[in-house]
């Protein structure tokens, strides 16, 4: 689901000349860096697991994003950090919350009244934005893994498949009526075991896991207007996007590099010169 530093993915646009603005999002599961050129083009990015050494993760994603475009560290004018590890990022001039950054990144791609749903590794957020980009309100999940990437990891573990295989497996589900009803991830895992005992197939259970995440996310907060999905789960699990489409009756919008949307927002704040309120 994410690069392990060996082969940085190609960024969407040509390498820049001159000054760069960096956003670094140290999330609970993954650390992301985005580089913006002076004119606001995304010119480099990198993603890796956060692991236990958050400082190293932040340094590494930034170095590899720079290496990808052959730019020196000195080309960075300003760094804004975000995510749960935002306060430990070396060299960051300012911090913003991941809520503000996902909102900013999503609005950059979809400048209208939207509801941003970020499904992260250990939390999810529902953020409502006005047509002018002002944040109207937000909600986070309860202190619970339901509706997050951590839930999918647990279910993948129970099913003895890799997290990256879960989406493909879910697509093979013929019976899509199985539901995992519990809020609690441990109870949900128990439900999965009882379904296995009753003869349910792995694809059906993988589908049920995505359905559960979609349901929990929609329960987090009221969504108005088009929904923009951000975060690693949105980027790597098209199944979730499809299920949300079915539930909402309209396809959610997914920005490019959805996993890096928070880092993009941070980089945009860096370019603005904004930071801690």
């Amino acid at each position: 689901m994410m690069s392990e530093d060996t082969a940085p993915p190609r960024s969407p646009e040509a390498p820049p000349a001159g000054r760069l603005y960096a956003g670094i999002d140290v999330g609970s599961a993954a650390t992301k860096a985005v580089l913006l050129s002076e004119d606001g083009r995304l010119v480099g990015h990198h993603v890796r697991r956060s692991g236990a050494d958050l400082v190293a993760a932040a340094e590494t994603v930034l170095d590899l994003a720079l290496a990808e475009i052959g730019a020196p560290r000195s080309s960075i004018v300003r760094i804004v950090s975000t995510g749960f590890g935002r306060t430990v990022v070396p060299g960051a001039q300012q911090t913003r919350t991941e809520i503000a950054c996902h909102a900013r990144g999503a609005y950059h791609h979809f400048p209208m009244a939207i509801t941003v749903i970020d499904v992260g590794g250990q939390d999810n957020k529902v953020i409502r934005l006005a047509a002018d980009g002002r944040q109207l309100g937000f909600r986070m999940n309860r202190k619970c893994a339901a509706g997050t990437g951590a839930f999918l990891e647990e279910i993948a573990h129970r099913l003895d498949v890799g997290l990256g295989e879960l989406d493909l497996l879910a697509r093979q589900a013929e019976n899509r009526s199985i539901r995992i009803g519990s809020y609690c991830t441990v109870f949900a895992a128990t439900e999965v075991l009882s379904r296995i005992r009753a003869g349910a197939g792995l694809p059906e259970l993988a589908y049920a896991a995505f359905e559960s995440v979609a349901q929990r996310v929609l329960e987090t907060g009221h969504a108005e207007g088009p929904i923009v999905l951000t975060g690693g789960v949105a980027e790597h699990s098209p199944m979730l996007v499809e299920i949300l489409d079915q539930k909402l009756g309209t396809p959610p919008l997914v920005p490019p590099f959805a996993q890096c949307c928070g880092a993009l927002g941070a980089a945009l704040f860096a370019r603005d010169g904004g930071g801690t309120p």
Partner: peptide, 22 residues
């Protein structure tokens, strides 16, 4: 046991960011 420092800190900070954003 029912409280998450990180989540609550982030929510308060994000709320003030929202207020500052008008």
């Amino acid at each position: 046991r029912c409280y998450s420092d990180e989540q609550v800190k982030t929510q308060f900070e994000a709320f003030v960011e929202q207020l500052a954003g008008g």
